[in-house]
Structure formats: structure tokens, C-alpha cells
């Protein structure tokens, strides 16, 4: 697990800051630990802090009135969540839950505002991070609106594949369904079809991407 100072140094939020400035920010950081499945923040509760994932994986999601879950993002180590309400006020727009045991570092909303006032470079960095997050959400809207479920599943596999050295994020079919905005059973059928097409091979608990080009082609197909 990365130390607090290492995490701050590697975060796009604080790139370009001096060691003294990072040390100053480090004094404002608090640490919290969560067990697997534990809720970190809840949708529509007052936003208290911005979080950096130090270790583990966090899912950010919204839940419909009938209990259906839509995953908005999977946050890996060194990435952040809960930016929007920290900067524009209001409630948490989504909930966040630990997918495995998780350690997060947080900076309280008031402390973050103080950092922004005294360190304009951080404000510029944050605009870049939020713009990247906005691009991701626009891409998600596009996928949910225009793409077939099998294309969405293909894209999830491409996005979450390990590079062959480090292992990728482990996802259940239920996780994939929540990300693709569909039912678990539909994900199961999509995986079977992708395997029949030769794009992937399912080897017990591993989904092996055997034909990356074919999978990418399927991922890019629209209605």
C-alpha cells in the first residue's frame, strides 16, 4: 500500500507541488479502512470529504427506487471519488462501496477549499481531473443509449483486463450487469456468445481475451 505522502505525490491533483507544499497538505489527510462490501459514502447524504483510494477497489453506484444498481465507476488505487459535491456543495450524488478490503485517504471539504485558495496550481489540476471524469460519464451515457448489451460487456472486458503481468480487477457477473445497465442473466448470455465467437475464452474463474481486435470490434458496434 502506498503511503499518504507517496499517494499525494503521484496524484494528478497535486502534481507540480513542492515537497513543502505536499507535506502541508499531508497534515490535512485522514485515513479510513473498510471491509469488503462496507458502504463508504451514501447517496443523498451530506458530502464530507474527497477520497483517494490507497489500496483495494471501490465501486461508485446509484440505486433506483426498485433496488436496481447502476455502477458509474470502479475506482482503483491512486484514483479519487466524490469530487463533485466537495467542490459545488450539496449531497453525495452516488454511493461508494468497498469491493474488497479498502484503505482510503480523505481530505475534508473545508480543508480542500483552503488548499484551493492558497494553491491555484491545484485548482488547474482538479479541472483536468474533473474534465476526464466528465468524459467518462459522457461515454457511459453514449454506451447506455446507443450500444447493444453485448457491446457494453465487450467494452467492460477490455477496460478491466489485466495486462498479463498485474492481475485485472475481479468482477462478478452481477458487477458487470450493474455496469452495463442490464440484468445478470443477460451478461451471462453475452459472455457465452463472446466465447462462441472466439473473442474470449472462459477458463473457470478467468475470462481470457483471446482475440482483442474482434472484441474491440464488437465493443464499437452500435444498434
Amino acid at each position: 500500500m502506498v503511503s499518504r505522502l507517496e499517494l499525494l505525490e503521484s496524484s494528478p491533483y497535486f502534481s507540480g507541488l513542492s515537497s513543502a507544499e505536499l507535506e502541508e497538505i499531508n497534515r490535512l489527510v485522514f485515513e479510513k479502512r473498510y471491509d469488503r462490501d462496507e458502504i463508504i459514502i451514501t447517496e443523498e447524504e451530506k458530502a464530507e470529504a474527497l477520497y483517494f483510494v490507497a489500496s483495494g477497489v471501490v465501486k461508485v453506484f446509484k440505486t433506483s427506487a426498485d433496488g436496481k444498481e447502476q455502477i458509474l465507476a470502479i475506482i482503483r488505487p491512486e484514483e479519487t471519488f466524490n469530487e463533485a459535491p466537495v467542490f459545488n456543495g450539496g449531497m453525495n450524488p452516488a454511493s461508494a462501496q468497498a469491493m474488497v478490503p479498502v484503505v482510503v485517504y480523505g481530505i475534508k471539504r473545508g480543508d480542500m477549499e483552503a488548499i484551493l485558495r492558497t494553491k491555484p496550481r491545484v485548482a488547474l489540476n482538479i479541472i483536468r481531473v474533473i474534465a476526464k471524469r466528465l468524459r467518462h460519464l459522457v461515454s457511459l451515457v453514449e454506451e447506455l443509449s446507443f450500444k447493444r448489451v453485448i457491446s457494453r460487456v465487450a467494452k467492460i472486458l477490455l477496460d478491466y483486463a489485466g495486462d498479463g503481468v498485474a492481475s485485472g480487477t475481479r468482477l462478478t457477473q452481477r458487477d458487470m450487469a450493474a455496469m452495463a445497465g442490464t440484468a445478470r442473466e443477460v451478461v451471462g448470455r453475452s459472455l457465452k456468445t463472446l466465447a462462441e465467437n472466439g473473442a474470449i475464452r472462459i477458463d473457470r474463474h478467468r475470462i481470457i481475451i483471446t482475440d482483442r481486435d474482434s472484441l474491440r470490434e464488437i465493443a464499437e458496434q452500435s444498434f
Binding site: Y160, A161, G162, G164, L171, R184, G188, I207
Partner: peptide, 23 residues
């Protein structure tokens, strides 16, 4: 890893996560 146990579990107590890797 047929994942049927996960599919029938109403309380989501049992899960079968897949590792996704490049072949």
C-alpha cells in the same frame, strides 16, 4: 465456476468474481 450459486443467492452472500486477462 458455473456461477449458479451466485445467481440463486438472494442475499448476495456468495459471489464468483472473474479475473479478466489478456490472452
Amino acid at each position: 465456476w458455473c456461477t449458479q450459486c451466485e445467481a440463486v443467492c438472494v442475499t448476495e452472500a456468495i459471489t464468483c468474481p472473474f479475473e479478466i486477462v489478456l490472452g
